[in-house]
């Protein structure tokens, strides 16, 4: 998949005409700029620009963030966002400005292929910080009391306990065997494959499915 070209220019022509008309009507010099800016913005909106080793240089800052130099510009503290966080963790990553508007700078198609190992690790670090969904590997204790479930579990982040409401769609089935549990604090836990739990654990869990 290559970068998408400019769309055929129908829309642009119409806006240009409108811009001319209005500037003539108002006689105010700086209005044109506004419209042109918006025009440009809508143009930008359609661009799908892929970043790779050749056109983008990521550097990890001392404070633990990422700077990006691309297209002759330096972007500080960029954000890296997964477009498909649940199925494809290392592909289609949207790289965005660190500002409040968080405009997209470009897209990484495949982290493993398009960047060297060191850059890949630096970007992965950002992803690991941004996304927090502990994976449950073992159910240590499951209790239920007055409409709340109390879980003590082992996760890839270590042991932890959490609580959720039993009648509140806190448990979401992503597919037949993969589930997310959202606790009272809005943390999310994942069980990638319930069949991998022991029969006893599955029976405990079944009550909440």
């Amino acid at each position: 998949m290559g970068p998408m070209g400019r769309p055929p220019g129908g829309g642009r022509a119409r806006f240009d005409r409108a811009a001319q008309n209005s500037s003539m009507g108002l006689q105010a010099p700086h209005q044109e700029i506004d419209l042109e800016k918006m025009d440009e913005e809508s143009e930008q909106m359609l661009i799908l620009r892929y970043l790779n080793q050749d056109n983008a240089a990521f550097t990890r800052t001392e404070g633990g963030f990422l700077d990006l130099k691309t297209d002759g510009k330096l972007y500080q503290k960029v954000q890296v966002i997964r477009m498909f966080p649940n199925t494809d963790k290392n592909r289609y990553l949207s790289v965005r400005e660190g500002t409040e508007r968080a405009r997209e700078i470009g897209v990484i198609n495949d982290l493993k292929k398009d960047f060297d190992r060191a850059t890949g690790r630096a970007i992965e670090e950002q992803l690991n910080v941004r996304y927090f969904t502990p994976v449950i590997t073992k159910l240590l204790s499951v209790k239920e009391e007055s409409g709340y479930a109390y879980f003590v579990v082992m996760t890839d982040y270590g042991e932890c306990r959490f609580a959720f409401r039993t009648n509140n769609n806190a448990v979401v089935k992503l597919s037949e065997n993969r589930i997310f549990i959202q606790d009272l604090e809005n943390n999310r836990f994942e069980i990638p494959d319930i069949r991998k739990l022991s029969v006893k654990e599955q029976r405990k869990l079944d009550m909440f499915l």
Binding site: T61, G63, G64, Q76, V129, F132, E185, N186, N187
Partner: peptide, 11 residues
């Protein structure tokens, strides 16, 4: 450059 000093769960 800005520094990340702590990370925490939603709690």
């Amino acid at each position: 450059t800005p520094v990340r000093i702590a990370r925490f769960s939603m709690r």
